[in-house]
Nucleic acid binder design. Structure first.
Length: 481
DNA sequence: AGGGCACTGCAAGGCATCGA
DNA sequence: TCGATGCCTTGCAGTGCCCT
């Protein structure tokens, strides 16, 4: 690399030049009396006038002489590319915060979502959202998580890649014999170890084939065990009634684990998830995993819309196929962890593609089944054939293009959140329902036109009026924007 | 004012070295 | 022998600013 190349003297350098100039340049200049050396960043005026800029701040000599306003595009000492990278990661974090909120809102049951919206209106989460992510002194505030974090959050957001899967947090306590039998390298606290079930044979979990690419992560796929002790897969032959019953129980548990705030009425929770997790999701997963020959022991995901669904499906399959060594059922914590990782980024990219593709137009259940099958495959392949940018595109062009894309997405998210926080509760719930129904996927095309019950109302009505109470309830209208 | 060359920063390829 | 790593060279896009 040529990173050590000298820069910085915005001046003519004599033949015996400064020692900060590279050897090749010194040689090159040996035959000349003087050598041109340019600065790092000319001010806007000098750039426009194409004249030398001495880069002094706040006002360069040229601007001072010409009595012009002197402005610099970038902070001192920063290259354009560095600025782009820095700015992009900042916008990206803001976008993630917004996306996390929206994703949470669309996954929550309606009344819990309303609760979140109320807190939003009260400004409880302002510090996390756009424009408020810097402290007084201008330093960036550490990326914060939303207060409605899921209780399964044992992620440290480390960037250690595949090791993510084998590192565990103390909140997941699997007996050592269990973890050893599947090749896990879990760090258990001493207190946990002392209370562990002594090594016992675990017939439900055969030794992993060491030839598998990630022996700690996969297990040969086990078929569903019937109460009678026999085995059958969760295929079309499984009594739908039985499956459905078990599934609703799972949905309830998942809901309780994942949903924050005051719990919605039970019927609401089950309806909510049941709608998205029909029997054929499990059947699809099961069939595909059987064909694959192995399954993930633990899946990991961030707080995306698919989180609860993926967790529920995987847990359903895991708990149907296995039990812990002490005979107790596998809990959600054993089968699913929350957390992002470098590789999760790949998963997320892939997921986004799917939700915008032809497949995405099918039922969410089908996409979920697809996801469950492909998570291990993607992780195995590690998407080594990925390109950072398009062919023929420079890094800087890619940065600029990507930045405007992220910016656009961020604005759409911010706009949606802003709309949600200003809408009356019932209107907000309706918008959320549509979000869940996939009507506004890719918020860039969010129509921002809501049904107006009382069309006679003046469209330019003040925002405050939207909250006017009528007859004890909220007035049922809201703006077109 | 601005054409156009000099220069910088960055990425990628080539090559040498080292350890398994 | 092969993969990992680091250094050096080369090429190029983008920017600075000389000079007409």
């Amino acid at each position: 690399m040529s990173g050590s190349r000298a820069v910085g003297f915005a001046t003519w350098i004599d033949g015996e030049a400064s020692s900060t100039v590279d050897a090749p340049h010194e040689e090159e200049s040996a035959g000349n009396n003087k050598k041109r050396h340019q600065g790092k960043q000319a001010c806007q005026q000098c750039r426009r006038r194409k004249i030398k800029c001495d880069e002094t701040r706040p006002k360069c000599k040229s601007c001072g002489k010409a009595k012009l306003t002197c402005e610099y595009e970038l902070p001192a000492g920063q290259t354009r590319q560095q600025a782009l990278v820095e700015n992009q990661s900042k916008i990206q974090r803001e976008l993630e915060a917004h996306a996390s909120l929206i994703s949470t809102l669309r996954t929550l049951p309606s009344d819990a979502a309303v609760e979140v919206l109320n807190r939003l209106r009260e400004g409880q989460y302002d510090g996390i959202l756009v424009g408020r992510r810097e402290s007084q002194d201008g330093t960036e505030v550490q990326h914060a998580s939303f207060p409605w974090e899921y209780p399964v959050d044992n992620a440290e957001d480390d960037a250690s890649g595949e090791d993510d899967e084998t590192n565990s947090d103390a909140t997941v306590s699997l007996p050592q014999s269990y973890t050893q039998s599947i090749g896990y390298n879990m760090a258990l606290s001493s207190s946990q170890q002392s209370t562990q079930v002594p090594s016992m044979p675990f017939t439900g979990m055969p030794q992993v084939d060491q030839n598998l690419p990630h022996p700690g992560y996969y297990a040969p796929y086990m078929a569903y065990q019937t109460p009678a002790g026999g085995q059958q897969s969760l295929s079309m032959g499984t009594p739908a009634e039985q499956l459905r019953h078990g599934q609703i129980e799972i949905s309830q548990q998942v809901s309780q684990q994942f949903h924050m705030g005051p719990l919605a009425e039970e019927s609401h929770i089950t309806t909510d998830l049941d709608e998205y997790l029909p029997c054929d999701t499990l059947q699809w997963c099961d069939t595909a995993l059987r064909d694959l020959g192995f399954e993930s022991l633990v899946i990991r995901s961030d707080r995306g819309a698919e989180t609860t669904l993926a967790a529920a499906a995987h847990w359903a399959l895991s708990s149907a196929a296995r039990k812990k060594p002490d005979g107790t059922p596998i809990t959600l914590n054993d089968a699913f962890r929350h957390g992002t990782s470098k590789e999760n980024v790949s998963i997320e990219m892939w997921w986004n593609q799917q939700t915008r593709s032809m497949l995405g137009r099918e039922r969410l259940a089908h996409r979920l089944a697809f996801l469950a099958v492909y998570i291990p495959i993607i992780r195995m392949a590690k998407l080594t054939c990925e390109y950072e940018r398009l062919a023929g595109q420079t890094r800087q062009q890619a940065l600029v293009e990507n930045q405007s894309k992220i910016q656009h997405e961020l604005e759409a998210h911010a706009s949606l959140i802003s709309t949600l926080r200003t809408l009356p509760s019932d209107a907000a719930v309706e918008v959320l329902d549509r979000l869940r129904g996939g009507q506004y996927d890719g918020y860039g095309s969010f129509p921002w036109e809501y049904p107006v019950d009382n069309a006679d109302e003046d469209a330019s009505v003040e925002e405050d009026e939207a909250f006017t109470e009528v007859g004890g309830g909220l007035k049922r209208y809201w703006h077109r924007t």
